[in-house]
Simulated scan of single mutants.
Amino acid sequence: GRSTKAPYAHTWEGVEAGEYQITAAVTDRHRQTVETEPITIQVLQGASVALVQPAANIAVKPGGTTRLEADVEAGSAAIAKVEFFKNDQLIGTDSNAPYALDWTEAEAGVYQVTAKVTDAKGGFAITEAVEAAVFESGEYPALGLRLWLDGSSVTQEASKVSVWADRTPFGHDTSQAEAGQQPAFHSEGINGQPAVVFDGSDDILSGTANGATLLDSTAASLFLVMKQDGGSRNNAVFGWESDSHRNHLDLLFTYNNVLLFDYGNASDGGRISGAQPERWDNNWHLVEVYRDGATGRVAVGGVTVFEGEFFDDLAVDVEGTLSIGGVGTLHHGGAVAEVLVYNRTLSAEEVAKVR
């Protein structure tokens, strides 16, 4: 490398293992050059490490045991140890191949799991993190479940709901501080289960959520147990948006008797729609909403109502507003008993566990 200004220095990067003779040469304005005596530098090859168990994000119940295993390739020096971490807190150490241990986590939470290899020369390498969500999901599939609202997580006083808390460890709670905009709580909304009732005027629960912790840009599975009042026409029951209609997930169920499913820019290929099914008004329904790549689909009571193709994706690496009971100036007139949001497309077997 070359340096033309004091202090004369150069950063040497991407050096392969080996032995090198290093000299420095200075040249003055008369093109006279003076060179230092060479020094020998030995560059050692560092070890590499990768998590092979788990190789991708996982979800487990509290008290469950997870096998952690790292694949290690030694460099110029012998391997001294491999350490496993959760959120930078040491889980355990293994000094002998195969480098593995069992991890039992009792406390619910979201953990970033990594492995760190250290060699006999003190060199080290760290894996990319794998996410482990530890929580109780009941009979529902846990992997990818990023929001779960039901009657057991409602905070209410005098039958007015101030907080609807997320039952997953991702903390996507919704709330309403203004008493006049708090929805009502009915202890026996459907099949003896509680429900939250929105007036269709200004009731809404909302919170802030980073899209990347809640959704995927092209994959999602949403389940809502909901009822629409017959007198309510311009409904938006659930949404997440960072730039109004230009970047949002919005379930306008229903808008002038049409189901609108937005995922991306509603004006630029991010919307599919279909007519509301028979017996929609004033009845409880399990509504299923899916996006799988470019394909979107909405089912009611296990029967597909419509499907279509998206031509835009959702930008998720931003903060946005999560809301239930309304989106923007559109509000839901009716009730919601449960909401499940997955950041992936569930299989048919997994869907059967939700229905």
Rank of each mutant, 00 (worst) to 15 (best):
D216Y: 04
S162N: 13
V196Y: 02
D166F: 14
D203Q: 10
F170V: 03
F253D: 06
Q228S: 04
G180C: 00
R167H: 07
S206Q: 14
A184Q: 13
L205M: 07
T168V: 06
D203M: 04
Q182P: 02
H172E: 10
Q182S: 11
G189E: 10
Y255D: 13
E157Y: 09
F261Y: 01
A158T: 15
A195K: 12
T168W: 09
N210R: 13
A266M: 07
S159Q: 15
Y255N: 14
G270V: 14
P183W: 11
T213K: 12
L215K: 09
V196Q: 03
L205D: 01
D166E: 13
W240G: 00
H172C: 09
V163Y: 03
D229V: 08
A236R: 06
N191R: 15
L249V: 01
S152P: 02
N234P: 04
A219R: 14
G192I: 08
M226S: 02
L149H: 03
F238S: 06
T208N: 09
Y263I: 04
D216I: 00
H245W: 08
D173A: 12
Q156A: 02
G269M: 14
V197L: 04
S175M: 06
V161I: 14
R167S: 08
T218W: 07
G207P: 01
V225C: 08
S201G: 07
I190T: 09
S152I: 03
D203H: 14
A236I: 01
W164T: 05
D216Q: 12
T218P: 05
K227H: 07
L214F: 09
D262P: 01
N265Q: 10
D173T: 10
I204N: 10
N257I: 05
L252R: 04
Q193P: 00
F198E: 11
V154H: 12
V258H: 11
A158Q: 15
D202A: 06
S187Q: 08
S206G: 01
I204Y: 06
S242M: 08
N247V: 04
G239A: 09
T168K: 01
D243F: 07
A209T: 00
D166W: 11
L214Q: 06
D199A: 11
F238M: 15
R167Y: 10
S242R: 09
I204K: 15
Q156N: 05
V196L: 05
F170S: 00
T174E: 11
L251T: 02
D229K: 13
L259F: 15
S267M: 11
G180R: 07
G211P: 00
R271S: 05
I272L: 04
G192D: 07
H245N: 15
G230T: 06
S201H: 08
H186L: 06
A220P: 08
F170K: 01
A212N: 15
